[in-house]
Amino acid sequence: MTDKNQTPDRAGSYDADGLDVPTYHKDTHAAGPAPRAPGAGSTPLGAQDTGAQETTQFERPSGGLFSRPGRAAPQEIKPSQATPPVQPTYTEQDYQAAPATGTHETVAYGNPPAQPVAAAAPVVAEPVAVPADYAAPVDVEDAAHPDHRRGTIDFGLLIIRLLLSGWLILEAVGTFFRLGGNPGLSGLELDYANYLAPTGLSVIVPSMQLAAGVFLLLGLITPLFAMVATIATSFTALHALTTSGAGPNIFAWPEAVWLSIVLLGISLALQFTGPGFISLDYGRSWARRPLVSSWIFVLLAVAGGVALWWFGAGLNPFA
């Protein structure tokens, strides 16, 4: 296949049996080609130029494609001979169930017939008795991470402590150093002249006021010195009530009595609230949440105030 200008012959439209194999020949314009005889294997170049499209390598069967053994000749079907498909017709009775002619029961072989199941009675939950010592479960995560946010309560407790401690300190310092027209220890002893121990009371009462005022101002050992402040303010309230002569008529009580009662209530409140975090007791348990210790110190304060008045004054303030 080294020759140039090789041209395949062209098969005609009648070669439908696939038996024609195109062959190649040298170009007729090449040097020294021999003319092909009619009936040779390929179509000569002259036939291509004149429009002949027949390939003569193999002879065409006389009967066509379907004349070969095993091939059936085609038959032409006319439109009039075609039979249309028959569509099945359905009636309303085809979709209706057949009427029951009797009682039919299907029983599986080898299995007993199914018994009717009665409806189950409703289940009523019985009340569970809770023991008296039952404690609700505690969330471990909440216990491990308690919420210590207190808002502005610590600042409010600081203001209360400042007011109570300021009054106690000023009252004691004025008595010891005779400041602001205060007659001092001698003048306080004259005020207690009608009591059983005027000299001792004139020293004990201002000393308690000074100690309670300083420690409450610092917020240090608050439960103990709140108890001391309760004893001192209760004694001054009873003393103001005795000297006023108003007796049990609360509408006739002077301002000195009400001031001592208000200070007494503040000292009792500090026992239950604690000093707050703005204090030197911020690391103590009573600074956050006083519990049983508050009631203990309150009872001790009541007992101390009664004892101081009973053994120091010995008078009935309501008489």
Rank of each mutant, 00 (worst) to 15 (best):
S13F: 13
S13C: 07
Y14V: 09
Y14P: 01
A16E: 14
D17S: 12
L19F: 11
D20W: 10
D20I: 14
V21N: 08
T23P: 07
T23R: 13
H25R: 07
H25C: 03
K26D: 00
T28N: 01
T28R: 01
A31W: 01
A34N: 12
P38Y: 02
P38H: 04
P38E: 08
G39C: 11
G39K: 06
A40D: 14
G41Y: 03
S42V: 15
S42W: 03
S42D: 11
T43N: 10
T43M: 08
P44Y: 01
L45Q: 02
G46V: 12
A47W: 12
A47Y: 07
T50K: 06
T50D: 13
T50A: 13
G51K: 02
G51F: 04
G51Y: 08
A52S: 04
Q53D: 15
E54D: 13
E54G: 09
T55C: 15
T55F: 04
T56V: 08
R60Y: 11
R60W: 08
G64E: 00
G64F: 02
S67D: 14
G70K: 09
G70A: 10
A73R: 09
P74C: 04
P74S: 06
E76P: 01
I77K: 00
I77H: 02
K78S: 15
T83E: 08
T83G: 00
T83S: 03
P84L: 06
P84V: 01
P85C: 03
P85N: 05
V86Y: 06
Q87G: 05
Q87E: 13
Q87K: 08
P88Q: 11
P88D: 10
P88Y: 03
T89H: 08
T89D: 08
T91S: 11
T91H: 11
T91D: 12
T91P: 00
E92T: 12
Q93M: 06
Y95V: 15
A97P: 04
A98H: 05
A98D: 07
P99W: 00
A100L: 12
T101S: 11
T101V: 07
G102A: 15
T103P: 04
H104F: 09
T106R: 06
T106I: 12
V107L: 15
A108G: 14
A108K: 15
A108V: 15
A108R: 13
Y109V: 15
G110Y: 04
G110A: 03
G110C: 06
G110M: 07
G110H: 00
N111E: 10
N111V: 13
P112G: 02
Q115L: 01
V117F: 05
V117T: 14
V117G: 04
A119V: 13
A119F: 05
A120R: 00
A121N: 03
V124F: 08
V124S: 10
